[in-house]
Computed example of a mutant assay.
Amino acid sequence: MRDSERPLDPSDEKRLKTRGIGSGRSYEPFIKVHEISSKGESFRILGRNSTRPHHLLSRLELSAFLVFDRYQPTTDIKEQYPLPIVDSLSICERLGIKHPQIAGKLKVVTTDLVVELKNKSGIAIAVKYADELDDLRVVEKLQIEKVFWEQQGYKWEIFTEQEITPSIKENLEWLHAANQNLDDLYSELSTLDIQLIFQRLKGINKRLSTTCAALDDEYLCEPGFHIGLFRKAVAANLIDAPLNTVFRQWSCSDLSLTKNFSLIIGGLLDVS
């Protein structure tokens, strides 16, 4: 029996009615974390651009997601995106490979992350551990994705654990957690307040964490106030920090105000 004559898996057919449609807050991934039996880790986290929960099926997917969620041109990220079955069948026939299926029923091919960019073509990303690329069937599925997304005018990339260092990975998780924690302690601080507090670091050549603890004492702030402020400011792209160095080792001299911050301050001054 030809693949095109085989039935679609009933559970996949049901999901296609409501999932993989829309964008932003309205998008619903084809696969959700509670629907898989995984030996590894899975994550459900709030996206900075979409402001909706994203379903990520491995820690490597989390790392890839955090890289692009922080990327300035990103406007939306769609995870577990389903390729139209008609297209994947056609591509398999052209490539001469067997369409993914289980027990004689066709399975929908999904792409781990589809990143939409401002004023640019999007990027489709397959997230795989490097040793998975030795598996012929994995490579064949990746070929299906590659052909499909290139037909759509998207750039297609493979993201492995070799694309990100342990320090960057830890920093991104630390910064993302700052975005999730909406602390009232910082909610009333303006960008001008952040600039003034940033000036307290000038001329200090010590570790940031040590300096922040001293500043908390000097200005009678709650313990952790200054380091929390800089953490949120870096997470919001208002302050630059060396992400290739783990945050615990940052020095005061490593931090600088970003161009994005300057533009905001300039806009505020223009309005006033």
Rank of each mutant, 00 (worst) to 15 (best):
S4N: 08
S4R: 11
E5N: 15
R6T: 10
S11C: 14
R19T: 12
R19W: 12
S26D: 13
Y27I: 09
E28Q: 13
E28D: 13
F30L: 01
V33H: 11
H34V: 06
G40D: 03
E41T: 13
E41A: 12
F43V: 09
I45H: 01
I45R: 03
R48P: 01
S50W: 00
H54S: 14
R59G: 13
R59C: 05
L60D: 09
L62Y: 10
S63D: 06
S63G: 03
A64H: 04
F68V: 08
F68A: 05
R70N: 14
D76F: 15
K78A: 09
K78V: 05
E79M: 03
P82E: 09
I91C: 10
C92N: 00
I97C: 06
I102S: 04
A103Q: 06
K105A: 09
L106P: 06
V109W: 02
T110E: 12
T111P: 06
E116I: 01
L117P: 08
N119A: 11
S121N: 12
A124Y: 03
A124W: 03
V127W: 10
V127F: 12
K128A: 14
D131P: 08
E132R: 06
L133T: 02
D134P: 01
V138W: 02
E140R: 11
E145G: 07
Y154M: 14
I158V: 14
F159R: 00
E163L: 07
N171V: 12
L172P: 14
E173G: 11
L182Q: 14
D183L: 08
L185R: 15
S187N: 05
L189G: 09
T191E: 09
Q195P: 10
I197M: 11
I197N: 06
I197D: 09
K202P: 01
G203Y: 09
N205P: 07
T211W: 13
C212D: 10
D216H: 04
D216F: 07
Y219M: 01
L220R: 04
G224F: 12
R231F: 10
A235N: 08
I239M: 04
P242C: 01
L243W: 01
L243G: 03
L243S: 02
T245V: 08
F247T: 00
R248M: 08
Q249K: 06
Q249A: 00
W250C: 05
W250E: 04
S251I: 10
C252R: 00
L255H: 00
T258H: 00
T258E: 02
K259I: 00
S262E: 15
G266A: 02
L269V: 13
L269G: 05
L269T: 11
V271N: 06
S272T: 02
